[in-house]
Structures are given as structure tokens and as C-alpha cells.
Amino acid sequence: MRIKPRIEQKIAQSVLMFFTFIAVLVLVFILAVILKNGLPQLSLEFLSRNPADMGREGGILSTIVATIYLTIIALLVATPLGVGTAIYLTEYTVENRITRIIRFGAECLAGIPSIIFGLFGFILFVNRLKFGWSILSGGLTLAFMVLPTIIRTSEEAIKAVPASYRLVSFSLGSTRWQTVTKVVLPSAIPGIITGIILSIGRSIGETAAVIFTAGSALRMPTSLFSSSRSMAVHFYILAREGISMSKAYGTAAVLVIAILIVNLITYYLMERYIKHRS
């Protein structure tokens, strides 16, 4: 029996709507649980005091600071490396076997579980290079973890810049570098920023790669070589070892809100940037 196209279309629309509803429902449920349990824990004291008694008492200030340091180091390292690689692959090479291998490698890297990056960071930075459990080891490990994302999104953004811009730029006697910096990158910035935001989110929320490399000390980090505990690791330890579920939820709420704020601010800035240019 054939279903009439009109009816078929109605069914498809309903089913797709249902799928969307489920997807959104899951998201709302997660947010609701975390915020319901976490928001009551939040207070100025929770944000402005260091953890005490293994995290049973006090706040989470040192873990917030550690998370910020780790993320900043990760991005300071990964952004130039990633964007630079993307520029080189798209603007300075022609598509051939070697660029395809590099791209394939970057994609494989993106699929590797973060705990493997943790192990790699532990072996290379903590042991081999003797950085110990530290902000530096953790930040560098995170940098390599988010590198494929930044390469990939930057590459897509750069490829999306119309070829005519480059052609005109060359026809006016610009060098390739001038073309990249004055024409290609300004047009690709929104896409590149998207990759960086994704990376900030992943760095803030990462546990496995950091626990092996930055350690889990509760002290306020004072230098690049301080061992320290990020918010996500703090949450994991509080919950895993049953130290304090309420503090764990409070930490989770701060994590979620932090990621939300980062996204909102960046999208706002990007909106303004795009408006300014078109």
C-alpha cells in the first residue's frame, strides 16, 4: 500500500518534531537537575573561599582559579598552533597526499579519548620533561587535546572565504601573507572563534586529561608549576569519594554557568563583529 505524499509528509513532520522534543527535553532535564541541586549551594562565600577539609567545607575559589589558568594556557598554546596549521594547509599547500595524511591524522587525534591525552601528558610533561603535576603540564595536555578541533574549525572557516577575495588581493600585487592577514583571516574570524569557544568549553569541563597532569591539590596555584585541581576534577573527586554531594552540585552549577557565560559573551561579540563588517 502506498501512503499519500501529503500524509507521509505529516507523519514525517510529527516524528521529527518528536525527536527534537526528546533532544531538548534531555538537555533541559540535565540543566534542571544540576541547577536545582546546585543553585542553593551558591553564595559569595562558596565562590570566594578555598575548599577546606578536603572540600567538605568552604568554597571552590582555588579550583576556579586553577580552571581559568589551565584554560588560558591551553588556548595560548593551541590557538596559534591550530590556526597556523590551518592557514598553512589551506593557503600554502595544494591538496595532495601529504596534506590528506595530515588532515586524517588531525581527525584521528580528535577522536582519541581524553584519558589517552591524560596518559600522554603524564608521560611527556609530568615525567619526561619533569614539569611534575602542574598547571603547565595540564594546560599543555589540554592544548593538544583541543588542537584538532581548532585546526578543523579554522580550516573550514578559511575555506569558506570566497576565492574571489584572494584573487583580487593578488591581482593588486599583494603577497600571500598580506592576503591572509588582511583579507582571509578577517573574514574567517567568526568561524575560528567558534572553534575556540568549543575548545574553551571542552577545557573547562575536562576531567580525565587534567587529573593525570595537573594533579588534584586543593591549594591556590601560585605558579605554572603548582599542582592544582580544576573544577571538573574537584566535582569528580567530591562525588566519587562521597565527600560532599551538595558541594559537588554547587561546583557543577558553577561549571555550567561559566560555560554558558563564555558562550553568551562570545556570541555577543561575534554578532557585533559580523554586523560591523556587512
Binding site: 570566497p162 574571489s164 577575495y165 583580487v168 583579507v183 578577517p186
Partner: peptide, 8 residues
């Protein structure tokens, strides 16, 4: 060029 192509 064929199509007007000002920079943005």
C-alpha cells in the same frame, strides 16, 4: 573581474 568583488 567579471563579477563585482569588493572586499567586505
Amino acid at each position: 573581474f567579471q563579477r563585482p568583488n569588493p572586499f567586505p
